[in-house]
Design a protein around this nucleic acid. Sequence first.
DNA 1: CACCAGGCAAGTA
DNA 2: TACTTGCATGGT
Length: 217
Amino acid sequence: MPSHVSKILSQLYDKMFAHFGPQGWWPAETPFEVILGAILTQNTNWGNVEKAITNLKKSGVLNPQALAKIPEAKLALLIRPAGYFNVKAKRVKNFLHFLASEYEGSVEKLCAEEKGVLREKLLGVKGIGPETADSILLYAAKKPVFVIDQYTYRVLTRHFLIEEEADYEGMQDFMMRHLKEEVSHFNEYHAQFVMVGKHFCRKSPRCDECPLKGVNW
DNA sequence: CACCAGGCAAGTA
DNA sequence: TACTTGCATGGT
């Protein structure tokens, strides 16, 4: 028996999906690329991340082994278009050290780790916070985890589905409590939140044109 | 020109 | 504990 909130969330999803169509996240060719993208896109436009990824690919270092060998300063120059390149170079290096020491440098082994254990271990890496960890869990390791971001917060608060004071864990609990635990659905739902957030629910919202306008509950 | 972008850690009081 | 600040490029 679906709860009232579950029905609302289902309506929201249907409206967004009808407007934007399937997003097919994450836009990457390999799980390792997903992980790098998750770190590089922190507070950064995805287009800039793509430039950085392209640089890594052209330099032939878009794999854990090659990337671990190049100096941090060199890495920073390659990812320069993604912004915050010095901090992000360190964060990528932190992750690579973690991958080497905990999973013998194997992304496949990392992805085979149990969900809760992996989440805690990822959060132990300096530079990987809740959103980055959950993006890795969902989009690289295919674990059923709902990713929360600023757009999620804006949509949920502006539609009075959660309180303004809600934190990351609170929003994640809310979503996961009311949705069927399914990787493909968590994947697409989060992507739809980002799309509606980008186009209609910014700091200067276009609520009158938003596909979520007129959802009745 | 101002504002924004798929966060996080470190510093301050 | 609860705020604030630094990090930085590139598109609109």
